[in-house]
Design a protein around this nucleic acid. Structure first.
Lengths: 210, 210
DNA sequence: CAATAATTGTGAACTTAGTCACAATTATTA
DNA sequence: TAATAATTGTGACTAAGTTCACAATTATTG
């Protein structure tokens, strides 16, 4: 294991994949698994998995493989999904609303505790169990609740302003659905849906010529 | 320019970013732009942009920069967003519904022409202008319409089956929101929302220790 | 028109990420 | 218990991706 090192981004993303895969194996009642098996399920090389895990420790048993339950627990701690995360959503449009109702997040311990919008006509309406609040109430809300993660699901032109507001409130991380590069020092994860469609369009266009 | 080459994935994704950035510049009325300016807006190196573009040709003028309007058109052709794409959505849950109403897609010429679900209680209901159809009607629908892209927004356990169905119908590309690795030869773009949250959680956890 | 300034396009150098290959370890079988 | 088979963890190697640095080009200024 390499101590105290910067972990490459691709490794971090794959940790999530491993976690997902191991949970499936667990549900299938499998107790021990070899890196080779995980690899074939995920369509990657087994050495990749072993190397990725080696950033964090030695979790396997030579000649045997990994204990599924144990490795899940280890990954939970490494990734940080052994705890609950409080999440707020800024922007109650299509994407914001979909996220509030999306069961996947709650299942992974990302609890949405508030939804905010600048549009006063939306304020007071309910999405699932949550009532849409006006963005001006955010500051007050932040005093009463610990907010760790914020989702930006506002139009592009409002995204930077929202980011700066969130920074002031001491939010620890942002998931950004707006198609802009945010200028901030907080960790940001970009989820750009139309960008994915464009990437796909490009690939389709190249399919023939390969 | 390097002819007939495989284009690295990161390059493809950045093309989309450049396209987005150039459109903003165009809206701001800027006629010529230097790679340095685009770079600073996107938080990357200018040499990166120049090298990326060099895969496809020489679009700039030395000492001057790039003509914004011209480069937009070039990128449109390269990416493939100079044409309209017909898209169907499989799965009328939170995410599927959000996408139907999401204006960003239509704006980028990805036209959603059908929504399908396996749940008969949803069939007949409307999302925006579209009526949810039962998945069994997909085959018939595909005979009457050209479908190029399908979005998989069904639960994990149904995703692989749907994929195989789509493959049979000759769909050209898939945007996959289900948290599984799809086994297929069709180009797939993964959009894994909870994976993004997990990656963010990991980064937040490391913030202090850097 | 010569000198200056700006900026591209790209080969070379460098950095990061991924794969190989094998000693070390564990379990199983004869 | 010795031989065999499976599988990890990792250093060395290979590949992929990024940045540097500079000749080539264009526009502008005196």
């Amino acid at each position: 294991m390499k101590e105290d090192q910067k972990i490459p981004n691709p490794v971090v993303r794959r940790l999530g994949l491993y976690y997902r895969c191991l949970n499936k194996l667990y549900d299938e009642g499998i107790e021990y698994v070899a890196s080779k098996d995980i690899a074939s399920r995920l369509g990657i090389k087994s050495s990749q998995i072993r190397k990725d895990l080696s950033y964090f420790g030695e979790f396997g048993k030579r000649g045997v493989g990994y204990n599924v339950e144990n490795l899940i627990k280890k990954l939970e701690t490494i990734i940080g999904v052994d705890k609950n995360w409080n999440v707020i959503i800024i922007g109650a449009g299509n994407i914001g609303s979909a996220l509030v109702n999306y069961p996947g997040l709650k299942k992974e311990k990302f609890n949405i505790i508030g939804v905010f919008d600048a549009d006063r006509s939306k304020v007071g309406k309910k999405i699932g169990k949550l009532t849409i609040q006006h963005i001006s109430q955010l500051h007050e809300f932040a005093k009463k609740n610990i907010i760790e993660i914020a989702v930006i699901a506002v139009p592009e032109n409002a995204a930077q302003m929202v980011t700066e507001e969130l920074e002031k409130l001491g939010i620890k991380g942002i998931v950004n659905f707006a198609p802009v590069k945010l200028r901030t020092n907080i960790p940001v994860e970009e989820v750009d849906i139309t960008l994915s469609f464009k990437t796909l369009a490009f690939k389709i266009g190249r399919e023939g010529s390969r």
